[in-house]
């Protein structure tokens, strides 16, 4: 055995810091896409390790659909203040008004698809050339094939068949004007890795990740929070349940799971025991078609 022991979380952390610094070294105007979810919170924590005592060489950018959990928004503002880094918020609401976009209709009218427009406008406005995101390859089959540095054309589109080979730990960030790179420092982490890391590093999370009482309705086996963003039908029964969120997206497209897990150890035990994947259990937007994620990525979604 070697005298230099390096735990798997140390390896993942070091790899992520390396990717962060490659982005900082290779790009003029990067940004970190921050959603208030656990993956982007982990990214901020890793960025602190990569760049302190210096400032981040990028702002945090949040594309706010207007349908976010208030707890996640409060957490976002507090975090940016605590670490003293710049936060840019752009609202889907404004894009809808300015561009005359059509609001989706239906019971769970999701603005998820409209985020892409606001994101592309923000890229244009600030001339971002690299966007750092918290996507992981274990989340979904299309993501399993994406590079750590993933080039997007000027329409933000991903072309899975024309990806650059990515060898060793060498990242090719050369792009043409108008293109941008999406960079994914935690590509090789799984959901459980993220939770184990949050536990080890004692990272604070928004309260909705822990068990709490909430008014929900049941829809096709999933629990959806009652909020002003969803339309209740006369047939819906509002239930009071002890729930937590496994992922944090929009209130319209993120489902809660029933849980009494109020500490991080309990959550990790639940994840180890679970029989359903993260996106399968909590994302209403992925179930639309077999290739839902692939299609959205091709269209400029993260």
């Amino acid at each position: 055995m070697s005298q230099y022991q390096f735990d798997y979380l140390d390896q993942l952390e070091s790899e992520a810091i390396h990717i962060f610094r490659e982005v900082a070294g290779q790009f003029e105007r990067p940004a970190l896409l921050f959603s208030g979810g656990k993956d982007s919170i982990t990214l901020v924590h890793l960025a602190l390790k990569a760049f302190r005592p210096g400032k981040f060489p990028f702002p945090l950018v949040h594309i706010d659909t207007g349908h976010n959990f208030p707890e996640a928004l409060a957490y976002r503002d507090e975090l940016a203040k605590t670490i003293g880094e710049k936060l840019i918020v752009r609202n889907v609401e404004d894009t809808i008004k300015e561009k005359g976009l059509t609001e989706p209709k239906g019971k769970f009218a999701s603005r998820n698809a409209l985020q892409t427009y606001t994101l592309l406008d923000a890229i244009e406005e600030f001339k971002f050339d690299a966007l750092i995101g918290g996507a992981r390859r274990d989340e979904e089959k299309a993501r399993a094939k994406e590079r750590i540095f993933s080039v997007r054309d000027e329409f933000g589109q991903w072309n899975p068949k024309l990806q650059r080979p990515e060898l060793w730990n060498t990242y090719n960030g050369k792009i043409h004007k108008g293109e941008n790179v999406r960079a994914f420092p935690i590509s090789n982490w799984t959901e459980l890795d993220v939770w184990n890391y949050i536990r080890r590093e004692n990272i604070e999370l928004p309260s909705i990740y822990f068990s709490h009482e909430r008014d929900v309705i049941e829809h096709e086996g999933q629990l959806v929070a009652v909020s002003k963003f969803i339309t209740l039908d006369p047939t819906d029964t509002v239930l009071k349940k002890q729930v937590r969120y496994r992922t944090v997206g929009d209130m319209t497209c993120t489902a809660a799971v029933e849980s009494h897990a109020s500490r991080i150890d309990d959550i990790i035990n639940e994840i180890i025991a679970t029989k359903t994947s993260e996106r399968g259990e909590t994302r209403i937007d992925d179930k639309v078609s077999e290739a839902a994620m692939e299609d959205r990525k091709k269209g400029g979604y993260f």
Partner: peptide, 13 residues
């Protein structure tokens, strides 16, 4: 293309 897959046992990732 190359796809990356992940699994863990108590001994290794």
């Amino acid at each position: 293309d190359v796809a990356y897959k992940y699994f863990s046992t108590p001994k290794r990732k």
